[in-house]
Design a protein around this nucleic acid. Sequence first.
DNA 1: GATCCGTGGTC
DNA 2: TGACCAAGGAT
Length: 303
Amino acid sequence: MVLQWYREKGRHHLPWRQTTDPYRIYLSEVMLQQTPVERVIPYYQRFLDRFPTLEALGEGEEEEVLALWSGLGYYSRARNLHRTARISGGELPRSYRELLQLPGIGRYTASAISSFAYGEARAVVDTNIKRVLKRYWATSDGREIWELAERLLDRENPREHNLALMDLGALICRPKDPLCSLCPLRSRCLGRGDPLAYSSPSGRSYSKVELHLGISLREGSIALVPSQGRLYRGMLLLPSVPGGERAVATIYHTYSRYRVRVLLYPLSSPPADALWVPLSRLGEVPVPSLVRKAVKAYLEGGD
DNA sequence: GATCCGTGGTC
DNA sequence: TGACCAAGGAT
């Protein structure tokens, strides 16, 4: 039985498992999207210290929300989180349908909030559960997974049921080296003979990009410019420069499907719209990791 | 339905 | 180093 396995071996220590507060469940689910659990934990704690309630979040500024998110990536998550806080006026809606209407909340997150916070009988399907179910039924067709999940759902105990399948996927039914011998479902699992055949392909191809960024320092402050395009919207970046021969430092950074080689140059006259941010306050400002890495490399490499 | 959106860790 | 990964959502 999965439930018994979960009660003995599940990840009960995770901070967001200690609560049924919809806001906290919601925050954790958004942070966990495409992001490793261990990485989320400190961000989750810090975020709640500053914004303990959805109401407090709605009263905060997007700039500060993005600053708290800095380093987590996928920053539209933070902007949507903040928008949702403002839209919903201090309290999340109770119904799945209304949750689905909110920015940044899709089928997975709406189901997760409904089941984890409200105890509603909603099946949850994330990549972990999808992999578990695909192997269990030995199907490579991902389209019917939601229906299968609904059929399998324990309607008496949806919260634990969903968490159990999720933990099973993360701890036992792992993408690469599944621990079938420890799996509580092994006797009825149709995919146990060849579990890897039913894993998702997931492959992402990378292309190389080169970036030329300028660094201006004056009296301990650095010049940053607001992001223009869709990427890093609402955040501050190093200004782009034409690029010359004398890069002071070079760093590598991966983002989305790009492997970026970043060349850093001293910049004597930054753009007029630049903001001067004291280096000592770089941690309080909405900048992506790329900027922190670049500044660090520049200061260390450029004497 | 395919593509875009970040990042630090790991092998 | 380079490839690949990890609790999705929006377009």
